[in-house]
Design a protein around this nucleic acid. Structure first.
Lengths: 137, 137
DNA sequence: TATTGACTTAGACAAAGTCCAAGTTAGGAT
DNA sequence: ATCCTAACTTGGACTTTGTCTAAGTCAATA
């Protein structure tokens, strides 16, 4: 976590209290908050932080590759701080809960050249869908 | 296509001119239009069709399993009429173009039981990302 | 501790989508 | 053929999510 702040500092970021709070809120495993959820939690620690700053900061973290943007449902985007460990997502169709998962093998290997239409392919995002234990009961 | 209208009729749909036009607009391969794009094309054939009806009709087609909803980018959802042939998507990070692709193997097989967190898994959506020939030039 | 350009703020704006009350119509019933 | 009515459509208001801007604030360097 504080590694993150150090890395950001090294890249010329000003370490404002707002940015620090956003980074703190995004700490942990299986964290996939929407921008508004990040804002709500940030406000608990820094009541005057604005929505615009949360959006700006999240956008910057994504640009720097420190946080991933996840769009699983066409609703609000979610922000995933686990950007330094390759992983995929398991989403509950009932309640929307998200878990990070680690499938075996390289998904790119499954796509034959004839199916690549001349694209230069850089990666693959997999969303597994199903019902979590609570929702399938 | 007219198969679709027949199937819808069999499920109790009233075949209004609006629904017919939306179904016609969604005909073809590699079609991944946003709701607004569907509306724009529908208006060319039926000038008085409203946005609300296009949204309603697309939602019903999705519920009936005739059309897939695709959220690749957190912008507007796209609607994919190719619901009866399993496929995945290849998305250009430059211009947003989408192609249907058919990777080999079953993506579910790559997810070990220990990574399923008790979910009942129903499927997996894969989004391959890269640059199309035009954008990589 | 003074300076300044980067950062933050509130609020206006925009895009995508939902909802509602009122009007219209497809298709079964007569 | 026409009537009836529940199902459908409509326009517009509204909500959610996100972007932009002008004015004010402040972190970091000197």
């Amino acid at each position: 976590m504080s590694d993150l702040l150090v890395r950001l500092r090294a890249r010329g970021w000003r370490l404002t209290s707002q940015r620090r709070v956003v980074a703190e809120v995004l700490d942990g495993d299986h964290v996939h908050l929407t921008a508004d959820e990040v804002h709500a939690r940030a406000v608990e620690r820094l009541p005057e932080i604005s929505r615009a700053t949360v959006y700006n900061t999240l956008g910057e973290l994504v640009t720097l590759g420190e946080v991933l943007e996840v769009a699983t449902d066409g609703r609000a985007k979610r922000y995933d701080p686990n950007a330094h460990h390759a992983h995929q997502h398991l989403v509950c169709s009932g309640c929307g809960a998200i878990r990070d998962v680690h499938p075996q093998g390289d998904p790119l290997a499954a796509l034959p050249a004839a199916e690549r239409y001349g694209f230069v392919i850089s990666g693959a995002d997999i969303t597994y869908r199903g019902l979590c234990p609570d929702c399938s009961r």
